[in-house]
Simulated assay, not measured.
Amino acid sequence: MPQAHSRRRALAQAGALALALGAPALRAQQPKGALPAPGSRLAVPALTLLDGSRFVPAQAEGKVLVLYWWASWCPFCALQSPHMDQLWRTQSARSLAFLGLSIDKTAAPAAAYLRQKGYAFPSAWVSPEVERALPRPPGLPVTVVLGRDGRVAMAEAGQLFPEDVADIARFL
């Protein structure tokens, strides 16, 4: 899969370059629920996490922030989540902020799933209010990485392979 990974990286870099050069199609506002364009900004609201603590956007200032939409019933999330948890555990001390966003119908199954699997990554339930503030891009799982400047550095819909998840550390 190195070729596909290199191709994704090249396309993301080309999109970021086009945005920096003022490409009108990339500068346009993204449709609601679409994958965010490289270089764009996302307004991440303050959220109550499934463990009862709070995520406040100021916690991520100057850090790389990984947004990870997942669900307890998603088979592709089940394959990717252990790698996301490992990324969080190994890189949180290196200025990585993380916000899992469960799209389960209610918070209870999501919280139970995290406990059952022993996952430590911070995660919130996407309530209708959260969905309005931070619409889920199409697909599942969805991984969006915001650079230290708060701009989208990477946006992927669908399951990431373990080496793709590990490669997120390059943004640190």
Rank of each mutant, 00 (worst) to 15 (best):
A14C: 06
A28P: 00
Q13N: 13
R170S: 15
P128M: 09
S92G: 04
P135F: 05
L67C: 09
S53Y: 03
A60D: 08
A43R: 00
A78I: 08
D51T: 11
Q116I: 05
A155Q: 05
L49W: 09
H5S: 15
P45E: 07
A43C: 00
A120C: 05
A97K: 03
G62E: 04
A25I: 03
E61R: 15
R54Y: 03
L21Y: 07
H83R: 04
A166C: 13
V142D: 01
W70I: 06
D85S: 01
R151S: 04
S102R: 06
I103L: 05
Q80P: 03
V142E: 02
V142T: 00
A93Q: 14
Q86Y: 10
P141D: 02
A4E: 14
L114S: 12
W88L: 10
W73I: 04
E129R: 14
L49P: 05
P128V: 09
Q91N: 11
Y68V: 01
H5Y: 14
A157E: 08
T48A: 15
P135W: 06
R7W: 11
W73F: 11
P137T: 04
L160N: 11
A18M: 02
P137E: 01
Q13R: 14
A155G: 00
A108M: 02
K117S: 13
R8L: 15
R151P: 00
L79V: 11
S102T: 13
A155R: 00
W73T: 14
Q13H: 14
A93D: 14
Q86N: 12
A93K: 11
L26G: 08
L19E: 06
G33M: 06
P138C: 02
D104E: 11
R8H: 14
A112S: 11
P31W: 01
Q116P: 06
V152G: 05
A14N: 08
W125D: 09
W73Q: 10
L96T: 07
R89D: 01
M84I: 15
